[in-house]
């Protein structure tokens, strides 16, 4: 039962990544991201309790604190502070994007179809699902034009990796896990500073305008 529940949360994370794609307002996207992190944290906790692995609890807690709270709040803060327009500007229409996301999920299954995978707890689904979250994250970065939505895409991608970690190998070794959290946090802070400086310098954070290097 708990295994099923954990799988459900993983699937939910995939669903939330699609909501990020589908959201046309920035806040909606950030909220979806927070929810995604939350569901992954829930799945982590479940796996940790099934397998009784103590360090996974730490990971779940970090996930909850860093990715479900601090980072979304940080993003909210930056958005408000810089008066970023709330509408998400896309290169591909939202409808098409969702279709693409479906294709990505199919592709991920195709990719691992002949690999004969087995993880310790969760079923066959985890690797393809995490690959699809990763590619969806990349898809967000490719199609969304604002700097802040690109950060959002990157964070989704990162969540996909985390999903794969906890589901396939019950997390990376502890110090690696800590390093990764540190890196992500510092990375987001640095990206935030960049967004801040760019909005000061260019009065905008639309990446379309950052095209001065063309040779």
């Amino acid at each position: 039962m708990e295994v099923k529940l954990a799988e459900f949360f993983i699937a939910l994370a995939v669903f939330f990544s699609i909501t990020i794609v589908a959201s046309n307002r920035l806040f909606l996207g950030i909220k979806s991201y927070a929810l995604q992190s939350l569901s992954i944290a829930a799945a982590t906790t479940l796996i940790a309790s099934i397998e009784n692995i103590s360090h996974l609890f730490v990971s779940a807690l970090l996930m909850l604190i860093v990715k479900a709270c601090i980072i979304p709040l940080l993003l909210f803060y930056v958005t408000k502070k810089l008066n970023i327009q709330r509408k998400i500007e896309t290169n591909v229409t939202i409808f098409d994007s969702v279709i693409f996301c479906a294709l990505i999920v199919v592709f991920s299954y195709f990719l691992v179809a002949k690999f004969n995978l087995s993880s310790r707890v969760l079923g066959f689904n985890v690797i393809p699902l995490s690959i699809s979250v990763i590619i969806i994250g990349l898809f967000i970065m490719v199609t969304r034009r604002k700097a802040i939505t690109q950060i959002l895409g990157f964070l989704t991608l990162e969540n996909g990796i985390f999903m794969a970690e906890i589901a396939s190998t019950h997390g990376m070794p502890v110090f690696v896990e800590l390093g990764i959290f540190m890196d992500v946090l510092i990375g987001v802070i640095i990206a935030g500073i960049f967004v801040y400086r760019m909005s000061e310098t260019f009065n905008d954070i639309d990446t379309e305008k950052l095209t001065s290097f063309k040779e």
């Binding site: 995490s130 690109q150 990162e158 990375g187 960049f194």
Partner: peptide, 23 residues
Amino acid sequence: LEAGWKYLIICSVGIAFALFGIV
């Protein structure tokens, strides 16, 4: 600034893939 932003984003994505590879 532009160069720095592109560097940060593109390399971070790349490195994230590498992490997935390691996982």
